[in-house]
């Protein structure tokens, strides 16, 4: 886990997004490997903790449980 410079040439107008929260990655990203061995690019260092927290939360009953009144 380390900060990695994200350099782009002046004529590259594309953007990169954080693998955890979707935020923009500007100039550098936090690189870490998650529990499944996948290398992630994060906009912030504490997104590593957020990723683990989200993974845990998504296993909890009631998380992402939507009662639709509009279908």
């Amino acid at each position: 886990m380390t900060w990695v410079a994200s350099t782009k040439t002046w004529n590259d107008t594309s953007v990169d997004n954080c693998d955890i929260c979707g935020n923009l990655i500007i100039n550098r990203y936090w690189s870490f490997t998650d529990d499944d061995g996948i290398v992630m690019r994060a906009c912030r260092q504490d997104d590593e903790e957020l990723a683990a927290w989200l993974k845990d939360q998504r296993k909890q009953p009631g998380y992402a449980s939507f009662t639709s009144i509009r279908r």
Partner: peptide, 8 residues
């Protein structure tokens, strides 16, 4: 708590 909502 955990609260969920959707709209379309």
């Amino acid at each position: 708590g955990v609260y969920c909502a959707e709209d379309c």
